[in-house]
Amino acid sequence: MVTLEPPIEQLPCENLIYSRPESLAEIQTHYCPGCTHGVAHRLVAEVIDELEIQERTILVAPVGCAVFAYNYFDFDSAEAAHGRAPAMATGLKRVNPNSIVFTYQGDGDLASIGIAEAIHAATRGENITVIFVNNAIYGMTGGQMAPTSLIGQVTTSSPTGKDAALTGMPMHIAEMMAPLPGVVYSVRRSLHDARHTIQAKKAIRTAFEAQIQGLGFSIVELLSSCPTNWKMTPLDAAHWVRDEMIPVYPLGDFKVAEPLQNKNRSA
């Protein structure tokens, strides 16, 4: 084991430019090396700090790899049943209209078992924010095929590759949400490199701003890597997002309501 001398918290910090956001609890996550859930958590936490809404934010965590997100964020949190986070968030927001309520959901949770709850919360224009992490696979259960898996993608439940004739084409959630009238913001970003990560943070900020302004339903789809279940190194996984996922899931703004325009629109 490598020990830092002196311990890291005692290092001189006149030039401190990077630290843990207030909204992230001081606890290690259980995420695998190279997984971008940790990055997504950090971006959300930074935005919540910057918008100064930590004390009135409520997280609704999903079932999936982010099931313990309520341990990692430092504000009130609930843990929903699989796919039901938008319904639970609806209940929470309706009785706490001044709170900032967001769900953090993976692709199995939102695009598969919870698609009805997601579409109806969006259609109603629930004033909530959805952070949707798309890594094209079921992570927590060990790498099974998801509605977002790519054609030909080998998973533990599609051992010869995902077959469109059998299970359909990949689902495009950000594009599906955009035409729903209750949706004010629906965009797709990626976390595979620094430039895209900075763009993702801007989108997350806009999504929360939409909620603060009371505009309606906002969703940010984040293309994310899963080196463990893709059976790749973290670097190869990042390249797979860039080379294989983005051609299928183009980055972009699919809906930006008028009050949110002129803000950070580049994809």
Partner: peptide, 26 residues
């Protein structure tokens, strides 16, 4: 007060779960 017709009983009970988590009579 809050009234909402949910899209299903599945959603309704989870909305109840959300509001119950906020400690209101639901």
């Amino acid at each position: 007060r809050v009234f909402l017709q949910a899209e299903s009983e599945v959603a309704a009970v989870n909305m109840v779960y959300g509001a119950a988590s906020a400690g209101v009579r639901v």
